[in-house]
Amino acid sequence: MILAVHGGKGGVGKSTVALELAAVLGAVAVDADLGMADLPTARGPDLHDVLAGRATAVEAVREGGAVDVLPCGRTLAGARACDLARLGDALDDVARAYGDVVVDCAAGMRADVGVPLAVADACVVVTAPERPALADAIRARELARSFDAGLAVVAYNRADRAPEAVERALGAPAIAVPDDDAVTSARRAGLPVTAVFPDAPASEAFGRLAEAVRSCGLSG
């Protein structure tokens, strides 16, 4: 299963949601934000190397931590050298080797978002209680539809409750993820909050998000 986590607007928490979903679902988190990678990284081959033909996607996956991650490079030169045509096959390769994959998509609606949506079985839209964020989320939902990536659930980030208007606008159930200092602390350490603070309110919300994904038959 490949699950694309996107949302259009930057800064709404896509990377956090992707990392947490990967942790709860036992999936590989792939950082597909070629220009502004966010997920934890480490030395060794990364997605820039994969898309430049210097490494295979499977050998670039870092195992052994709280979450298996295929990190992305941080350099402009690395991003420039990427061949987007390789991205779809790279995600498929990781899914074949590991089973479940959660893709942390870039902001915007460019090819590095479209390709993961095209190969994904479903997507999660992340938005926040800001008018521009919801407008971008609606555009992101439309982009996902054009690639036949069904919307499994909406992550309404940094909010205590998800308004019905959001569910109506996006056409999918929405789960609120509360603003929680535990998330900040965990991300600062490069770890998912669900692993470090399993009893935190945000951890419970991420668990419900993962359960919503499972209920769509998308992950074991």
């Binding site: 220009g35 402009l76 987007l84 460019r110 090819a111 949506l117 095209a118």
Partner: peptide
């Protein structure tokens, strides 16, 4: 289609 139709994300 995504690679062809959507804007190039590379710097």
């Amino acid at each position: 289609d995504a690679v062809r139709d959507l804007p190039d994300p590379r710097p």
